[in-house]
Amino acid sequence: MSAEDTAYVTYVYAVARDGDALRESAAEPAGVAGAPVRIIPGTGDGAPVFVASSVSAQDFDEAALRRHLEDLEWLEAVARAHHAVIERLGAATTVLPLRLATVYLDDDRAREALDADRATFEQLLARLEGHVEWGVKIYVEAPDEAVSPPPPGPASSPGVGPGRAYLGNRRAQRSVRDSAHRAARTAAERIEAAGRAFATDRARHRVQQGELAGSRDENVVNDAYLLRADLSDAFRAEVAHAADDLPGVRVDVTGPWVPYSFATAPEPAAAEGGPS
């Protein structure tokens, strides 16, 4: 198939308000599959717009997307490009991110969906304006090797057999871990208090386990907070010190991000496919 015969579909990244800042930021990055990023206007004055690209139907129609769900390398490349566009847009203006691989047959179908949900999109954009997202994770740290079970062998203390020494060490481990979990609850209460003082909203996410956790430590809280940009520093300062006096507990604060966790948009009815 020649370049002239290639069929395209419309890939949409986000909803935004039109303006110079949006158009300047959209003009800079290449998007998914290296495609140029462009604006699809809604109908009527002041209507929200879609930020989109034209991508090959061979890779992005409904059947192709189903095939690609098992191709982790392909999905990672698409996700990186998708989020790179949104982050650049979000640095310039308020954007409402859409889910990965929101695809329409063409611009007309995309515009129909944009117009159909105009009121909801406008409400969400107004809510997110001037706001950013901060992520907060609390970890219970893995026990030190000092309280780990000893290797099989002679007891280190006279009169104490290997079995009893092992059980003693297990009890010590449980005690340390129980104390750390209590301390983590204290840290969570402090962070929630900071959220009530500074944040507009809070979203609770599933805690990360295994490889997603990124360490041996146990992730016990995985929250996102929506904050006015001018209150971010005060919130971050409170949260960063929430575990200073709590042994066995670590708090990670990340951001500011485009507020993905608070951009719950309606499922585009006219979308032709894409992974959920």
Rank of each mutant, 00 (worst) to 15 (best):
A197F: 03
E141N: 11
P143N: 02
A142C: 10
D107C: 01
V85T: 05
I138G: 02
V176A: 14
A187P: 03
A116C: 00
R196S: 12
W134V: 12
S156E: 15
L128R: 07
Q123F: 03
L96A: 07
L100R: 08
E122Q: 10
R164M: 12
V85E: 01
L105E: 12
A180D: 08
R177S: 03
G90C: 06
G168P: 05
P152C: 08
T94A: 04
E192G: 12
G161E: 09
D108H: 14
G90E: 02
R196Y: 11
E145R: 14
V147D: 08
T200Y: 04
K137S: 10
R182Y: 01
V176G: 03
D144Q: 12
A119T: 06
A119S: 09
L125I: 04
A199L: 09
G161T: 12
E189F: 00
D106C: 04
L114E: 02
T120F: 01
I86L: 09
D201S: 13
E145C: 00
L167H: 12
V85I: 13
R196T: 07
L167I: 05
A194L: 04
A84K: 14
V147T: 11
P152K: 09
R177A: 11
R164T: 14
R196N: 09
T120C: 07
Y104A: 10
A110Y: 05
A197N: 11
A116M: 13
P154V: 12
R88I: 02
V136S: 08
Q123H: 10
Y139P: 08
D144H: 01
